[in-house]
């Protein structure tokens, strides 16, 4: 089987250059001071200190987490019933529905967001609400498809067995379907929450300039303020938060599966 493993060598080289090296670059910038060249490193933690000591940045971070959480919850609330109803349809209609849900995912996200901007221009709404609509819109199909896949995979016999054992519809749903769809829910949450935390295009286009999320901060520091060191530090902080929450969800997932 050694000969098979050799097939991964090019890929290992690839991840060293295109995945590991970029992360090292960000770390390097985050830990150094503005204005120094790559030859004379001056290590410092001041970029991180600056972030955590400023109430504004902490508020931006909390707002980002709040809106991402809200988006995830609403995608789940809207998406779960939808996924469940789809799974009750005939097989042909299920394919059709999944297709209808996939199609808009192929249309450029920026174009869809611009369309929402046009639609929302007709209404006088708070910017946070506009951003919220845009985010739920963008991520809902991912949630529905993930949950639907996990429900559709279920063994039909399980449900028949539950009925045979005298469980009513509600009981079957609570005791059989819901627990078995947990992996789908978790991967749905991951697919919604992670990109929602870091999104910067939707808040920028729908929220207007006074709606700043952590992704916008990074963009501002890289492109407007030109402070790459601080921008890298913010990127790193965000990446760490996301990787930590990802690790946590995966752990929960494993526990749930073991049960």
């Amino acid at each position: 089987m050694k000969s098979f493993f050799r097939m991964t060598y090019p890929y290992i080289l690839w991840i060293a250059v295109f995945i590991v090296a970029p992360m090292v670059m960000i770390l390097l910038y985050a830990l150094t001071r503005t204005g120094n060249s790559t030859l004379t490193f001056q290590f410092t933690l001041e970029n991180f200190a600056r972030f955590f000591s400023d109430a504004t940045f902490m508020r931006v971070l909390l707002t980002s987490l709040r809106i991402a959480l809200l988006t995830t919850v609403f995608c789940l609330l809207i998406g779960y019933p939808a996924a469940f109803f789809i799974s009750r349809l005939s097989e042909r209609r299920q394919t059709m529905m999944v297709l209808l849900l996939t199609l808009p995912m192929w249309i450029n996200m920026l174009l869809k967001t611009y369309a929402w901007r046009g639609i929302l221009l007709n209404f006088d709404l708070a910017s946070e609400f506009k951003v919220f609509i845009g985010m739920v819109y963008d991520f809902l199909p991912y949630m529905i498809i993930q949950i639907h896949t996990s429900i559709a995979k279920m063994d039909g016999n399980l449900l028949t067995a539950a009925y045979d054992l005298g469980a009513n519809k509600w009981k079957t749903f609570l005791k059989v379907i819901l627990p078995l769809s947990v992996p789908g829910i978790i991967s749905g949450i991951t697919l919604v929450f992670l990109p929602a935390v870091s999104s910067f295009v939707i808040p920028k286009l729908l929220g207007g300039g006074d709606y700043v999320l952590i992704g916008n901060l990074i963009e501002i520091y890289f492109l407007t303020a030109g402070d790459w060191n601080f921008g890298s530090a913010i990127s790193l902080i965000m990446a760490l938060i996301i990787i930590a929450s990802m690790w946590l969800t995966r752990k929960l997932d494993r526990n749930a599966q073991e049960e």
Binding site: M23, Y29, E219, W228, S235
Partner: peptide
């Protein structure tokens, strides 16, 4: 390691590549 770009926010991946 392979999972990193999937978990990482796009903007972090983008900036990492640009810096590289």
């Amino acid at each position: 390691v392979n999972n990193l770009p999937v978990m990482n926010p796009d903007i972090v991946t983008a900036i990492g590549l640009m810096l590289l």
